[in-house]
Design a protein around this nucleic acid. Structure first.
Lengths: 233, 233
DNA sequence: TCAAAAGTGTTTGGGTTACACCCATGG
DNA sequence: CCATGGGTGTAACCCAAACACTTTTGA
């Protein structure tokens, strides 16, 4: 915007010599969740070409008539495709190139990620045939997703792991009340590695990201009841 | 790309009912450099409205006919506007919204950053009237840049500081040979804070990011000559 | 009584900080 | 001689890792 470049790119506007064609812009969503102690990603089944029959990330076209910003667009796409809201949407990156999508001469995707509660589920929305959770390590190993979505998932997972490793726990990710053991299990599932119990507990109360709920305990299995915690801030 | 959405957005293609208008897509560059022991950002003077007479980031329109990818576009824009190549281009973020640029109904910018050598300079290129280096803290304090460029600079600076704090020194940033004192001065200028000498030296040879050039010393001022180092990897 | 998970204490070691001190050089 | 920056050594401190141990429950 620092130079007098030609402006508009509305497909409805008549082409003018000074107007440059603009890329096809989409939003892709990487919803991550811990299921059965493993990190999973939410995938959408493709019923049409290209990549018919393959799985890919749920996403949608940027609608400049509906979306006030990129983040607003991500929220709208989540509501339309998954019939649910995604909390803590964070931008991963923008990717763009001429060969990314055979349907368009040039495709640009802005990728958003979200860590969601293990319990909540999504249902197929507009233009979506089926949704399924798949383990991220399986996705990485087989890399059989549509388009470049395998690398997009990898980038999102990397970002989320950095977040969890630094104990920046997204609000609303953990349930309202949980034991430190449960929280540690969730973090271990996200990171894909074991954590030291003592260190984990010390870091929790040193940073204050979670605080004990006075008096509340969880008595469950054949073991000592555990203090319940809740996310602070 | 997981849904059968309408595709193309070429301004030269006739509009069809199913086609959505696409946003105006630009690349913005945040070139950072240490000058006189302070971190500076390269700004471009705006000779035309909007924001006529103000300073902003150098940038340019994404050209899907010329650019194979977003990163390629950033390199082309650097060459065109600054008459030089920018090393270590890294993506900061994508920002987009309806109110970002009064010239377009919806504007999307992908922001790239680069830490460049203190000595090298840029010259105004195509459609650029004047270029100037300004201290980043002054830019942050006055926030008088065009558009939302003040926040874009802040994001880029934050990313670069995280990089330097973790001693991930961009190749080509430091001169071919330097003393540890000089390197520490550069890092301090980027971070805007003083570093401990002992810690800095220990971290350098522990990580191995810089290695001594055997036998090479710099004899300069009224003090003991210093061992010369060069960036590894 | 035993298994299982909760919770606490101690030691060790890596890495940063802070401070002191010597080294080599030009003025 | 002395100011200046280069370079080394030491002690304190923080934090994480590893390990041992006690506690409390259900089976």
């Amino acid at each position: 915007m620092t130079t007098p470049d030609p402006m508009h790119c509305a497909a409805s506007a008549p082409p003018a010599p000074t107007l440059h064609p603009m890329p096809f812009v989409r939003i892709e969503l990487v919803a991550l969740s811990v299921i059965d102690d493993r990190l999973h990603v939410l995938l959408s089944h493709r019923k049409e070409a290209p990549y018919k029959g393959r799985w890919g990330l749920p996403g949608g076209v940027l609608r400049i008539d509906l979306d006030a910003s990129l983040e607003a667009a991500a929220h709208r796409v989540a509501a339309e495709r998954l019939n649910r809201a995604l909390p803590n949407l964070g931008q991963v990156a923008a990717v763009g190139g001429a060969k990314r999508d055979p349907r368009a001469p040039w495709a640009l995707s802005v990728v958003y990620r979200s860590l969601v509660q293990p319990t909540l589920d999504a249902t197929p929305g507009k233009r979506v045939q089926a949704l399924a959770w798949r383990p991220v390590d399986e996705v990485a190993a087989r890399s059989d997703l549509a388009f470049d979505h395998t690398t997009l998932v990898a980038q999102a997972v990397e970002a989320v792991r950095r977040e969890i490793r630094e104990l920046r726990l997204p609000a609303g990710w953990a349930p309202d009340a949980f034991t430190l053991g449960e929280l540690q299990g969730l973090c271990e599932a996200v990171l894909g590695e074991r954590l030291d119990k003592v260190t984990f507990r010390r870091r929790i109360d040193h940073t204050g990201v979670a605080v004990a709920i006075a008096g509340k305990m969880r008595a469950g299995g054949a073991h000592r009841p555990a203090q319940l915690y809740t996310l602070a801030a």
